[in-house]
Simulated scan of single mutants.
Amino acid sequence: MYEWDFASLWQYRSLLIAGIGYTLLFTAICVAAGLAIGVLAGLGRLSRHVWISAPLRAYVEVFRCTPVLVQLVWFYYALPVLTGIEMSATMAAALCLSLYGGAFYAEIIRGGVIATDIGQTEAGQAIGMTRGQVMRRVVLPQAFKRMVPPLVSQSIMQLKNTSLLSVLAVPDLLYQGQVIAHDTYRPLEVYTLIAVAYFVILLPATLWAKRLEQHHSKGG
Results as ranks from 00 to 15, higher is better:
residue 134 V to P: 00
residue 135 M to S: 11
residue 135 M to H: 08
residue 135 M to T: 07
residue 135 M to A: 11
residue 135 M to V: 10
residue 136 R to L: 15
residue 137 R to Y: 14
residue 137 R to N: 09
residue 138 V to K: 02
residue 138 V to E: 03
residue 138 V to T: 04
residue 138 V to S: 04
residue 139 V to M: 05
residue 139 V to C: 02
residue 139 V to S: 01
residue 139 V to L: 08
residue 140 L to D: 04
residue 141 P to C: 10
residue 141 P to M: 14
residue 141 P to W: 13
residue 142 Q to C: 07
residue 142 Q to A: 06
residue 142 Q to V: 06
residue 142 Q to T: 06
residue 143 A to F: 03
residue 143 A to W: 02
residue 143 A to C: 06
residue 144 F to W: 14
residue 144 F to D: 00
residue 145 K to H: 11
residue 145 K to G: 00
residue 147 M to E: 06
residue 149 P to N: 11
residue 149 P to R: 06
residue 149 P to Y: 09
residue 149 P to E: 10
residue 150 P to Y: 12
residue 150 P to C: 09
residue 150 P to Q: 13
residue 150 P to T: 12
residue 152 V to T: 11
residue 152 V to G: 03
residue 152 V to D: 04
residue 153 S to Y: 02
residue 153 S to W: 01
residue 153 S to P: 00
residue 153 S to Q: 12
residue 154 Q to Y: 01
residue 154 Q to E: 13
residue 154 Q to H: 08
residue 155 S to W: 01
residue 155 S to E: 07
residue 156 I to R: 03
residue 156 I to N: 06
residue 157 M to P: 00
residue 158 Q to W: 01
residue 158 Q to L: 15
residue 159 L to Q: 05
residue 159 L to A: 08
residue 160 K to G: 12
residue 160 K to E: 14
residue 161 N to Q: 06
residue 162 T to R: 01
residue 164 L to W: 00
residue 165 L to K: 01
residue 165 L to F: 03
residue 166 S to M: 03
residue 166 S to H: 02
residue 168 L to S: 06
residue 168 L to V: 08
residue 168 L to Q: 07
residue 170 V to D: 01
residue 170 V to Y: 00
residue 172 D to E: 15
residue 172 D to A: 06
residue 173 L to C: 13
residue 173 L to Q: 08
residue 173 L to W: 01
residue 174 L to S: 05
residue 175 Y to L: 15
residue 175 Y to V: 04
residue 176 Q to Y: 11
residue 176 Q to S: 09
residue 176 Q to F: 04
residue 178 Q to D: 08
residue 178 Q to I: 01
residue 179 V to G: 02
residue 179 V to E: 07
residue 180 I to V: 15
residue 181 A to E: 10
residue 183 D to K: 15
residue 183 D to E: 15
residue 183 D to Y: 12
residue 183 D to V: 10
residue 185 Y to M: 11
residue 186 R to K: 15
residue 186 R to E: 05
residue 187 P to L: 09
residue 187 P to S: 13
residue 189 E to R: 03
residue 189 E to C: 00
residue 190 V to G: 09
residue 190 V to K: 04
residue 191 Y to W: 12
residue 192 T to V: 13
residue 193 L to Y: 10
residue 195 A to W: 04
residue 195 A to T: 11
residue 197 A to S: 13
residue 197 A to I: 03
residue 197 A to M: 07
residue 197 A to R: 01
residue 198 Y to N: 08
residue 198 Y to W: 07
residue 198 Y to A: 11
residue 200 V to E: 10
residue 200 V to K: 10
residue 200 V to M: 15
residue 201 I to V: 15
residue 201 I to L: 15
residue 202 L to T: 04
residue 202 L to Q: 03
residue 202 L to V: 04
residue 202 L to Y: 00
residue 203 L to Y: 14
residue 204 P to W: 10
residue 205 A to V: 03
residue 205 A to M: 14
residue 206 T to R: 05
residue 206 T to P: 02
residue 207 L to M: 11
residue 207 L to R: 11
residue 207 L to P: 00
residue 208 W to A: 14
residue 208 W to V: 13
residue 209 A to W: 01
residue 209 A to R: 01
residue 211 R to Y: 12
residue 211 R to S: 10
residue 212 L to A: 05
residue 212 L to K: 06
residue 212 L to I: 06
residue 212 L to W: 08
residue 213 E to D: 14
residue 214 Q to D: 12
residue 215 H to A: 14
residue 215 H to D: 08
residue 216 H to C: 04
residue 216 H to K: 09
residue 216 H to Y: 14
residue 216 H to E: 13
residue 217 S to R: 10
residue 217 S to D: 05
